[in-house]
């Protein structure tokens, strides 16, 4: 592939949205209220919309007749390069909100920079996605505050979820070789530079939500190299079921 680094770079962005969108899709019809049900489904829908734009672009770059669906649904587990954070399960609504919040803050900062990319397609996708993600961030921030500064029970649950997922935040700021190559060409975003603003924002919201900022400095990594938690395999079984069972068909 001529533009292999760009291809890998796009997957690095898109896989996060794919896996998070898939997780949110599990919740449709089972939310704590009709309004949150609609909101989570809507966020999932936004993410899948973004995913399609990214994979369609990646398919074009690959230039070998592979389609958006081949990229989304026919890779092996080790070939997905999403961060570990987004594949974590919907343990309860506090985990869903914590996962969303910890990703949204990053996602918003990331897209704000991607908008300045020299790659016009990526820049255009970023502009369109930013509108959506600023809404996602508002939704997850508001709910984090409600649950953190709600009842004793909700505070405990929210704190537990933040503590549980904190270990996956550092990976957001790791760079792969493809990332570095794309940064040097002015196409990619240097995520190491987002880290400070990220923790600043996250900690401010946690404080406002009367929650404690976790002190642990032990972080997990591996998603960007395709080394995932045990949760991903099951998610992929659902995601890939039809494409694997009925290969080479149109739907």
């Amino acid at each position: 592939m001529k533009n292999e680094n760009l291809y890998k770079y796009i997957l690095g962005i898109a896989d996060n949205s794919l896996i998070l969108g898939q997780r949110l899709g599990e919740l449709t019809g089972h939310g704590p209220s009709l309004e949150t049900d609609i909101a989570c489904t809507n966020i999932s829908l936004d993410l899948f919309g973004q995913v399609r734009s990214y994979y369609q672009y990646a398919a074009k770059i690959a230039g070998d007749n592979r389609t958006e669906d081949d990229i989304a649904m026919l890779r092996k587990e080790r070939e997905y390069v999403n961060v570990l954070l987004v594949e974590q399960p919907n343990t309860n609504f506090a985990y869903t909100i914590a996962r969303q919040f910890l990703f949204d803050v990053y996602h918003f900062l990331f897209l704000t920079q991607l908008e300045k990319s020299k790659d016009l397609t990526l820049s255009a996708i970023a502009t369109k996605s930013l509108k959506e993600v600023s809404y996602h961030q508002r939704f997850s921030t508001d709910w984090l505050k409600r649950l953190g500064d709600g009842t004793a029970e909700s505070k405990e649950k929210m704190q537990e979820a933040i503590d549980g997922l904190w270990t996956y935040t550092d990976e957001l700021f790791h760079q792969t070789e493809a990332d570095k190559a794309m940064v040097s060409e002015g196409v990619g975003v240097d995520v190491t530079k987002l880290k400070e603003a990220y923790y600043e924002k996250v900690e401010a919201v946690l404080k406002e939500a009367t929650l404690t900022v976790p002190e642990s400095k032990w972080f997990q990594k591996g998603g960007k190299q395709g080394i995932h938690t045990e949760h991903l395999g099951y998610l992929l079984s659902d995601l890939q079921y039809m494409q694997r069972t009925y290969p080479n068909m149109e739907w």
């Binding site: 898939q22 899709g25 599990e26 449709t28 019809g29 089972h30 009709l34 049900d37 609609i38 489904t41 809507n42 999932s44 829908l45 899948f48 919309g49 995913v51 399609r52 994979y55 958006e68 669906d69 989304a72 649904m73 998610l235 659902d238 995601l239 079921y241 039809m242 494409q243 009925y246 068909m249 739907w251």
Partner: peptide, 30 residues
């Protein structure tokens, strides 16, 4: 009615179908 269709959101055969199904079930919630 969201439940029987929600049952296929995670397993929709293509991204296009997944997006359409999500939108449909969301309409029902609306």
């Amino acid at each position: 009615g969201m439940l029987p269709e929600g049952n296929w959101i995670t397993r929709a055969p293509s991204l296009r179908r997944k997006v359409a199904l999500l939108a449909k079930v969301q309409d029902e919630a609306g």
